[in-house]
Structures are given as C-alpha cells and as structure tokens.
Design a protein around this nucleic acid. Sequence first.
DNA 1: CCTTTTACATACATACATGAATGTTTGATT
DNA 2: AATCAAACATTCATGTATGTATGTAAAAGG
Lengths: 205, 205
Amino acid sequence: MVRRTKADALTTRLELLDAAERLFSERGVSNTSMMQVAEAAGVTRGAIYHHFENKLALIYALMERVSLPVDEMRDALRKEHINQPLLQLRERCLHIVHQVQNDPHMQALVNILCHKCEYVEDTLPIHLRHLSGRNECIDECVKLIELAQQQGSVREDIDPRLTIISIFALIDGLFYNWLLDPEYFDLMSAAGSGVDNYLQGISKV
Amino acid sequence: MVRRTKADALTTRLELLDAAERLFSERGVSNTSMMQVAEAAGVTRGAIYHHFENKLALIYALMERVSLPVDEMRDALRKEHINQPLLQLRERCLHIVHQVQNDPHMQALVNILCHKCEYVEDTLPIHLRHLSGRNECIDECVKLIELAQQQGSVREDIDPRLTIISIFALIDGLFYNWLLDPEYFDLMSAAGSGVDNYLQGISKV
DNA sequence: CCTTTTACATACATACATGAATGTTTGATT
DNA sequence: AATCAAACATTCATGTATGTATGTAAAAGG
C-alpha cells in the first residue's frame, strides 16, 4: 500500500528510521540489509531508496534525530552552576549518562555507534560527525577545569586537558561495557561514584 | 605454489594471520573478504579454508596469538607489590596500557575487537571469550581494593567493585578514543594521570 | 619404494545485496 | 479538469561472498 499524503510519507520515514534503529542495534549495521529494514517497516526497498540514498544516509538520519534534543540539553546545562565549575562538570557528565540510560533512541544510537558499526573508511563521515561535537564539548569542559584551578579548588599540577580526556574516557568506557551487559553493573551508580572519585582526586585537600 | 613441508605450512598459517590482522584492522572485519585475506597473504582462498574453518575461526586464532603472552605477564605482575595493593593495581593497569601501545599484535587486536568488529550474535563467541578473561581480572582486582581498605589506605565508603569497574572503564575508554585518533592525546600520559587521580580520589586523606 | 596424507589450488553452486530503471497510483497544483 | 510530481512498488542487471567439492603434487610414514 502506497502512502500518498505528505503526513503519510513522514510516517513512513519515521517507521523506516525506527526499523533501522532497532535492526541495526539488534543485528549490527553491516549484517542488516536494506531489504530487512524495509520489511520490518512494512514497505519495500523502493521506499527506503526514495527516502534515503543508502545505508549510510540512514545512519546519518538516525544521528540527526537525537542530536537536536542533546544539543538543547547541553545548552541548558551550560547555564547552571556557573560559578561552581566542578559541579557543572559533574552534572553535565551525569546528565549524559542519564540520557543514555533512559532515552531509548539515544541508547540505541550509542549502542550502534559503539558496538554495531565498524569504524572504517566508508563510515568515516558518521564517526567524524560523532567526534566533532564531542571535541567541542571537551574544549568547553577543559575551561571548567581551568576555572576551578583559578578558584583554587583544583590542584595546580593537574593538566586540565588530560583530566577531561580521562573523565570522558571513563564515561565512554562505562557506556561501552554497560551496553555489552547491562546486568553486570548499575550504570548510574558507577558513573556517579566514578566521576565523584575522580573529581575528588584532582581537588585540593 | 604449494607449500609442502610442515614448517612451510606453519609459515603460510602465520602469513594468513598477519594478513587478516592487518586487513581487519585497516578495513574492518565484515568489510574484508576471505579472498582479500588470501591475496594479501599470497595464497588462494583454498589455503584459508584449509587452515581455518571460517572468518570467525580466523579472529579466534588472532586472539589466541596474543592471549598467551598477556597471561604470562599478568601472572608475573600478580606477584609484585603484594603488600601494596594500590601500587600493584596501578602497575597492572599501566602495564596493559603499555602493552597496547607497544605491541603491534596486541594493539591491532584491541583495535579490531573495539572498532572493526560488530558485536552481534555471530561474533558472540569472540566477545564472550574477550569478556571472560576480563571478568576474572576484575574479580582479582576487586580483592586488591578490599585489601587496601583493610590496610586503611582506601576509604571505607568506597565500593570496591564499582571502583574497579570504573577504573577499567577509564582504561577501556582511553583505548577506545586513542585508537580512533592516536594523535589526539598521549596514551601513557593520560592513563598514568587518570589512574593516579582516581586512586588519589579513593584514598584516605 | 609404495602408500597415504598434507597442503594447498581450482572450480562450482548458491545466495544475497545493491543500485538503478521503470511502472503505478494518487495527492497536490493551477 | 488537466497536469505534474510525490511516494512508493516492481523488476532487472550485476557484483560479490561463501562454502564445498574436487584435483594434485609433494612430503611423511612404513
């Protein structure tokens, strides 16, 4: 059955995205054919190629879908705890973790980018996009550490950049392992104690 | 040209492993065909299927190749700094990092498992194997934290298990990001400061 | 020296996946 | 009301990966 109106077309598009998100997340990107995505969405392959150029464009669209709410949330959190940089850093970190744990789209996307998609030349644009937003975030958080140093709450011998890279690595690693086996540990508890312990370690005594 | 002697066959096998390791690491597992591996090793596909059942068996063999030296090193490090659990933990962590940075086989394998191989049902045995050795290591390191608590060097309110999970996540995350862009930061520096800061954060003042 | 394996190469059968080309039905436009 | 274009469905042409079956020459074994 062909959907005719613009609203119907948008529905089809969303159903395709949902199907792709689910199948990619369950069975891996390269192990999922366009045919399977189409079938799961109740359409034929023709529908996919009408809405998306190819499989990469599909993943790209999946990223678009979550990037907007993520950006909004980041902008909001940027304005809180302005004079308490370590607290803001903590809140921003834990909020991302909370989002990955509770927003299904976000979780599926991180899962796909982390475990269901090979980082190769073909997928480079995807991962570059993923990293660009991240690097911005790193630069911004480095300034938080520097500010904390100026305020005297963080030790002078701490390298702000390496510190942020480590904290982000900690969170990435938690995602990485938690997505492999969500039962193995509680994500929020680990992230909370992990970030707190780390911040404690760089704080002045 | 057919290699006839047993020694020659072993050479062929090693060349196949080297070729697979390189191609998988460069172009991704599912994006590399058995044909390409064979060509890179200077043989035909028949040679591969003679030595390995399929692509999974190839990856499995790649793991075998590095698991032995890794195990040996772990056993050795287990015996050092017995009465200084935090120091032993630190050394064990940093040694793994050092190994990933300096041993090409180790680095390629971590890269493959981390970025060049989708975690799907087909590859489950691979990843299960990867995780089993890891979980053993976690259990062992948890005991190090508990010992440090008994010795009074680590705060009582620290959860040993979550702590180790976080520290391991930190290292995993560093691998994950460093392999994506080795120029972006110095692995050893980040790991050193990261682990030290974290341990500082859980230590008694 | 004869037989049996080993260690591959070659060939084949099958199965998908992709992309593009084309067809068709209906909403949208004027 | 007529035309256009969107939103798909259908079909085809092609490439490519896999697994297996078979062939073969030399090494290993007795």
